[in-house]
Design a protein around this nucleic acid. Sequence first.
DNA 1: TCAAAAGTGTTAAAAATACACCCATGG
DNA 2: CCATGGGTGTATTTTTAACACTTTTGA
Lengths: 229, 229
Amino acid sequence: MTFSYKYERPALAVDCVVFGLDDDDLKVLLIRRDIEPFQGRWALPGGFVRMDETVDEAAKRELVEETGVGRVFLEQLYTFSALDRDPRERVVSVAYFALVNLSDHRVKAATDAREAAWFATSDLPALAFDHEIIVDKALERLRGKVRYQPVGFELLPPKFTLRMLQRLYEKVLEKALDKRNFRKKVLAMGLLEELDEVEQDVAHRAARLYRFDKKRYRELEKQGFDFEL
Amino acid sequence: MTFSYKYERPALAVDCVVFGLDDDDLKVLLIRRDIEPFQGRWALPGGFVRMDETVDEAAKRELVEETGVGRVFLEQLYTFSALDRDPRERVVSVAYFALVNLSDHRVKAATDAREAAWFATSDLPALAFDHEIIVDKALERLRGKVRYQPVGFELLPPKFTLRMLQRLYEKVLEKALDKRNFRKKVLAMGLLEELDEVEQDVAHRAARLYRFDKKRYRELEKQGFDFEL
DNA sequence: TCAAAAGTGTTAAAAATACACCCATGG
DNA sequence: CCATGGGTGTATTTTTAACACTTTTGA
């Protein structure tokens, strides 16, 4: 069966830039292509948009299908449409960027049918299509966003130490931050719930755990509060 | 002649939210639809993407064709893909937002073959398709952007008074600003070139004209300078 | 007892805010 | 001469930046 149109149309796809943070680096989730074009190369998870789903839904679906990653922060990034971005035919792709708590997803991605792996943003392999450009755009967006929206927390487990939070900001913004000033500022916002728990299994004094108070943030937001770090 | 594909594909369109500023208000450029669906309703300028152009190019082209607006600030906004956004068939639309100096374009738009007109953002008519949602998204983006990128100048003539600049920020951000503090801050950035000219034909003391120094901005930007107002 | 990171305050500089009057110009 | 907006400075508060030592814990 085929579908006929009066005018020629590009194919429509989605691609997802999934960021995760581990002890060392900010990472991106890639899958290895098992078909041409770019067979064997690493690429962003993605695929074609179906007629019964929005592009948001397509991005979510592809993410689950290809990497097992579900229930994560996912936001539309940019639409890429260079005429030759796919050698087969004209494909316009709506890119998304996602933030996940890497420790939740480390295993899944590695055990999926298709080879999937995390790569440090500072050390990416050659990518298929225009995916390097897409990753660059996503990084730029993440760096801009993290400063005035509380999206960084999506990269951490629900309970985290202030040190983990600071490292996150340092990795994303690529600059060192002063510990005391950072703690002062972040606590002054009143968005962190101080828990009666400390981290486990560390070879030194255990740090207190905190939780991001989403409810409180939404309240403050309504009152015109601007997150800023 | 028709084009056949193995899988069904949505049509791909672009829509442009063109902002202009006049003495009273922030305005949006709309055109009146002369065909169904939504015949007679006001809508955003836009149209279908051709196979030999990127979506950026399509947006530029449609803007010129439908409104005569060319050489303006134009930036991709968001891609809209709700299944029922067009009653005829599935159409995915990449929205753009544009900033123009309204005094340059006031006449052109009005004399074009198709009826085009500027509407205050605070008083829009009922729009075709999901165009109200698109305008809202564009407004949100403009408000966010104007504070940390020098895009506001695109809404002014090349030579402007500080009062005009302040009014721009007040209209876009929807809040009053203190005159002295505003002038201090904006001049302290060192991005305004003070001209040896004053405004003409005003019924009171004429204000000095300034020009935005784009070259200087790009230099500072390279050195890590962040515009902020 | 050592290594590693947790936790904690103060001071100085810079930036943001609040605020009011005289001046120049054209009608 | 009056109405309109142009142009200007200071004091206060708030925010940011710089900076170092003691404590806790597990190995």
